[in-house]
Amino acid sequence: MINTAPFYHVIHKESEVFFHAFQNKIPLLLKGPTGTGKSRFVEYMAHELDKKLITISCHEETSSTDLIGRFIIKGAETIWIDGPLTTAVKEGAILYLDEVAEARPDVIVAIHSLTDHRRELFIDKLGETVKAHEGFMLVASFNPGYQRGFKELKPSTKQRFVALSFDYPKPDIEAEILINESGIDESNAKKLVNIGRKIRNLTELGLTETVSTRLLVDAAKLIHSGLPKRLSVNVAVVEPLTDDPQTLEALKDLVALMI
C-alpha cells in the first residue's frame, strides 16, 4: 500500500475513469509522452483505492517469464517462484506495466487472457490457470510518439483496454506541480514553465523527446536547494535532451535569455 498520498492534480476526470474501470474490471491504458504524470497518476489512484501497487518498468528484455514466474534451485530441491504478474493476479493488486510497448511480444500474449472476459492467467510451466482475484486490475502505459512505427501496440491489443491520453499540463497547473514537488517559489516556477513551453515549440530542432514536467521538477529542486538557476536548467533540462553540440548551444542560449 502507498501510505502517503502522492501529489497529483486531476485535470480531465481521469480519476473517475480509473475508478469506474476498476469497478467494472476493465484494464486501463495510459497514453502520452514521457514525464507527463502517468506513473504518478497510477500511484495516486492506488492510494485513493487503498490498493497494493506492483510496477514493472518494461524494456526490450522483459519477457513473460519475468512477469509470470520461474523455477529456481533452492538447496536440494527445485521450487516455483511467482513473478509480479502472478502475485498481483492472486493477491488482487494493481499491476502497472510501464512502457508496455517496450516489452517482448510474449508479454502481450501472456496478458491477453487477463484483458478480456476470462480474467485468467495461464502458467504454462505449471500447467495451471489462475483466475484473477476480484480486486486485480491491469494498467499499462506507452508513449505513442516514441520510435513511431517501430515499437507500437497493435490495434487488437489496444482495443482490450479503455484508454486515457496524457499531455503536458497547462502553465498554471504545471507551475503548481513544480511548487508542490520542489518547494520553489511561484516566480521561478513560472520561469521554468515558460522555458519548458518554449523548447516544446521548437520543433525545428528535431528533438527525439522534449521537455517533460519531470525535467522541470528536477530543475526546480536544484534551484530550491541553492544551485544557480542557469546551471540548474542546463544540467536538468538541456543536457538530458540532446548530445548534439549545436543544439546544446542553441538551447543554452535560449535558457540564458529566459532565466
Rank of each mutant, 00 (worst) to 15 (best):
81 I>M: 14
82 D>K: 07
83 G>Q: 01
83 G>T: 02
85 L>I: 06
85 L>E: 01
86 T>R: 02
87 T>C: 10
87 T>W: 06
88 A>W: 01
88 A>H: 04
89 V>M: 07
89 V>S: 04
89 V>I: 13
90 K>V: 09
90 K>Y: 12
90 K>F: 11
91 E>V: 07
92 G>S: 08
92 G>F: 11
93 A>W: 06
93 A>I: 08
93 A>Q: 10
93 A>C: 11
94 I>H: 07
94 I>V: 13
94 I>Q: 11
94 I>C: 10
95 L>K: 01
95 L>Y: 01
96 Y>E: 02
96 Y>C: 03
97 L>P: 00
97 L>K: 00
98 D>I: 01
99 E>D: 06
99 E>G: 02
99 E>S: 03
99 E>R: 00
100 V>A: 03
100 V>P: 00
101 A>K: 03
102 E>C: 06
102 E>M: 11
103 A>C: 06
104 R>A: 07
104 R>M: 11
104 R>Q: 13
104 R>V: 04
105 P>N: 06
105 P>L: 07
105 P>V: 05
105 P>C: 09
106 D>V: 04
108 I>W: 13
108 I>K: 06
108 I>T: 05
110 A>H: 05
110 A>Y: 04
111 I>A: 14
111 I>K: 10
111 I>R: 10
112 H>I: 07
112 H>Y: 07
112 H>W: 06
114 L>Q: 05
114 L>P: 05
116 D>A: 11
116 D>C: 08
116 D>W: 06
117 H>V: 09
117 H>G: 09
118 R>L: 13
119 R>Q: 15
119 R>S: 09
119 R>F: 07
119 R>G: 10
120 E>F: 10
120 E>W: 09
120 E>V: 08
